[in-house]
């Protein structure tokens, strides 16, 4: 147990550190993913199996989406042209080190109490019962609201489609655009 901790904890911290050292955006995203995977594995090590698996699954999906955004929208996604997208590094470093030292001092100064009470028998089962039982209506409504939001966003974003540009048979040339010279002339 303690040996696995000493593998996972430095891995989580070091890959978290590397997020802001890598120039390549894809590498930075994967470093953050490694950090999350290590802490998810630590949660599993603590006996919080459900929570650990949720963190791992959620963060794998999130980092895939994040990598697409990073590569699509960053100015220098591959890190091939050296450029700095940072500001005020010395003060940020000072604030970060100070907050770490304060937190560490607090961690060792506070007399942490032992566990009060016993853990519930099966927290995962209880969570499932709460979500699928009393909160079922909330979750179903939430699902439809999210779906309606996505459809509405796409409809609003594409109010001029190809049929508006090229006519009903898609044969109009040039396209009827407010400003001429676009794609698909």
């Amino acid at each position: 147990m303690i040996a696995i901790f000493w593998v996972l904890a430095p891995l989580a911290a070091a890959s978290g550190f590397m997020v802001f050292r890598f120039s390549s955006m894809a590498r930075a995203t994967i470093a953050l993913l490694v950090s999350f995977l290590a802490s998810g594995a630590l949660l599993i090590l603590l006996g919080l199996g459900y929570l650990g698996v949720v963190v791992i699954l959620m963060m794998v999906m999130e980092m895939i989406i994040m990598a697409v955004f990073m590569i699509a929208y960053m100015m220098n996604p591959a890190g091939l042209m050296p450029m700095s997208m940072t500001h005020n590094k010395p003060r940020a470093r000072a604030i970060s080190v100070t907050s770490f030292l304060l937190l560490a001092a607090g961690i060792f100064a506070v007399p942490w109490p032992p566990r009060a009470g016993a853990p519930p028998a099966s927290p995962t089962f209880q969570l499932g019962a709460a979500l699928m039982g009393s909160q079922m209506l909330t979750m179903v409504t939430l699902g439809f609201v999210l779906l309606a939001t996505m459809v509405t966003a796409i409809v609003l974003a594409t109010h001029r489609g190809r049929y508006d540009r090229f006519g009903d048979d898609l044969k109009r040339r040039p396209a009827a655009d407010p400003a001429q010279g676009g794609v698909g002339m």
Binding site: V19, M25, I95, F100
Partner: peptide, 21 residues
């Protein structure tokens, strides 16, 4: 470990310029 991760993240959030970072 939690404090270390938090402090590294704080450094990134304060020093990076792009919203994604």
């Amino acid at each position: 470990l939690a404090a270390g991760l938090f402090a590294i993240g704080l450094y990134g959030a304060l020093s990076q310029q792009s919203i994604v970072m």
